[in-house]
Amino acid sequence: MRTFDARAWVVWLLAGGVLVLSARNPLYLLLLLVISRIVQAACAAPDVGALRLPFWRLAAAILIFSTLFNLLTAHVGETMLATLPAGWWLIGGPLTLEAAVYGFITGLSLVTLLSLFLAFNAIVPTAELAGLTPAALYELGLVLLVAITYVPETARQFRRIREAQAIRGHRLRGLRDWRPIAIPLLVGGLERALNLAETMVARGYGATAHVGTPRPVRLLLLLGLGLALGGALRLTWGAADGWGFVAAGVLAVALAYRALSRRVARTRYRPRRWTWADTVVVIAALLPLALLLPLPGGAGLGYAPYPRLSAPPFSALAGALLLGLAAPAALEAAS
């Protein structure tokens, strides 16, 4: 089984997400939805411990709600289905087919976005995601990793304590009844945390801590934060050059962390090597983004049912480009 670099998956998710948010054409959205499902089916390992949601039921609920909501509240469009008395607050007025279709498209866009995130979550192990944190912020990633083992254990402990209290006749009725459960959980949790800390120290954790931050790096960090703040202020005043400041600020912070990470003497077990397949995934995901987005509004992936419903356009070229997001599944099948 081929696995791709977590960084490639992040690019895949971002590209897919931006495409979904900018596409209003239901045909393209449907295509993206199908692609994300196929990619998850092809690439997800069975035991990653992904969020298990009843996806199709959830999708149906979102679609129905979104369609009904827009049908009842947006009274624009030319194909009238029925009319509610004008006096009814918010929902009074003509109900149009266009409004229903618009609501459906909004729902479809939400469902597709959800599907992309679920696929990402099912495919990329959390440990690899945490591995993306720069070495200087290693502690932050480690806390996340420890939580992955710590939280389910706490849930098990909670069940055990509830049972233990139940057998001495304890019933949960009011707020005060939580004391017999909360205290053992808290004390037990603290004991476990202390044991864990002891284990980590015994295995040499923190041997590389206390790395000093040299003055130039500190100044660079300060400069970056200042630039980003200034840029944000410029943007709120409506000045377009704010983007430039923000970008420069982010670059400065990134450089500072890069410099800090170099000073940390740690190594990683089995560091993933970037392969040609990762490159293919990234390019295939960025290509539709680069080629479809700049097209002037409506001509690319857009579509509006108003004022009168018409069949959404479908360009074979755009469809083919979107298929690039299915590259991980294709590579997976080919290997």
């Binding site: 040499g204 954790y205 590389t208 190594t267």
Partner: peptide, 11 residues
């Protein structure tokens, strides 16, 4: 590998 990563053992 946790202890080895802490000790900066080469991959």
């Amino acid at each position: 590998a946790f202890a080895l990563e802490n000790a900066a053992v080469p991959p």
